[in-house]
């Protein structure tokens, strides 16, 4: 396949993921509304919000670094998509995945957050700075069990290539990592709760408390870019855990169903549990998830 065809398919995939992410966030809000006994927003509301944001006439800037926030965030989201195989075993939808892509994916996961630290810091609003400092602290705490889980998988499969990890899980659900390496699986699923950023780990944006954290000063097109990268990240984070633990996907329907279920696992946990404070959240990751992560490594060391 020529590089141009590959690029075209990758961009098409990005388009699908963006729209699926918007629909997913609308569904999330719809479910929260139904739980509260409301009708909730129409399912097409995120698209209208995006157009509205593009149509905002006033655009303010707080300097060069302010622009970088949304750009880095978007780069982080798109980078994660580009270097992860969308569908397993398909030449068209394998994107630009390569040997050792897992390390790059973990790097891109932090990239957006670091970018927001640049941009939000320049916004000058105290709530942005509080949000960012909490975000980075929590991210550091999530990273530990996450990396331990991934290393456990790397030892199990002797590879850091996501494609090979997915290949090793083919041939029925009993081959999925969540069943072959349940301790690492549970560690990663606990870390996933933090990575998805829903309650009880939503203290970065913390609605009603530090409204609304890092993007406080972002408006109009900036906010539109942040919203689209948020939509892509919803899907891509779920897809990462799908590829690591649930055997990846071989067609778009499977991709959509699995990412939906993984995303809503974090949503349902969020609907049940109220928000942690930052010290509670960080300590939580250093208890059971960290212990499980170390256990997952030890099991494969002997």
């Amino acid at each position: 396949m020529s590089i141009y065809a590959k690029l075209a398919y990758t961009l098409l995939g990005l388009f699908i993921v963006l729209n699926w992410g918007m629909l997913m966030s609308a569904t999330f809000r719809k479910i929260v509304a139904r739980v509260a006994g409301r009708h909730g927003i129409p399912f097409y509301q995120p698209w209208i919000d995006l157009i509205k944001n593009a149509g905002v006439r006033t655009t303010l800037s707080h300097g060069f670094m302010f622009y970088l926030g949304p750009v880095f965030r978007f780069t982080g989201a798109v980078g994660m998509f580009l270097f992860m195989p969308a569908l397993f075993g398909s030449d068209m939808w394998s994107n630009f995945s390569f040997q050792g892509d897992l390390i790059l994916l973990l790097y891109f996961q932090s990239f957006g957050m670091l970018g927001m630290a640049i941009g939000a810091g320049d916004g000058g609003h105290p709530h942005s700075t509080i949000g960012i400092s909490r975000g980075l602290a929590q991210h550091a705490a999530i990273e530990l069990p996450m990396i331990l889980g991934v290393i456990s998988l790397a030892i199990q499969y002797h590879t850091l290539s996501l494609n090979e990890i997915i290949a090793a899980q083919q041939g029925g659900f009993q081959h999925w990592t969540i069943f072959t390496n349940p301790i690492a699986g549970i560690t990663l699923l606990l870390a996933a709760l933090g990575a998805m950023g829903h309650s009880p780990f939503n203290l970065v944006k913390a609605p009603n408390e530090i409204p609304i954290g890092p993007p406080t000063e972002y408006h109009g097109t900036y906010l539109g870019v942040l919203m689209s990268s948020g939509a892509i990240l919803h899907v891509i984070e779920a897809a990462l855990f799908m590829n690591l633990l649930f055997g990846g996907a071989t067609n778009w329907l499977e991709y959509i169903v699995k990412t939906f279920l993984i995303y809503f696992y974090s949503v349902f946990v969020g609907v049940v549990f109220p928000r942690f404070k930052i010290e509670q959240s960080v300590v939580w990751f250093f208890k059971i998830p960290l212990a499980l992560g170390i256990l997952a490594i030890l099991i494969y060391s002997f």
């Binding site: 509304a33 409301r38 009708h39 927003i41 129409p42 509301q45 009603n208 409204p211 906010l223």
Partner: peptide, 22 residues
């Protein structure tokens, strides 16, 4: 904004910061 009248149905949403409200 709550179940009885639910303005979200009509695209009305609350925003916490003036930069994002219209």
């Amino acid at each position: 904004m709550t179940p009885r009248f639910d303005a979200f149905r009509f695209g009305v949403q609350m925003r916490p910061t003036p930069r994002q409200s219209n």
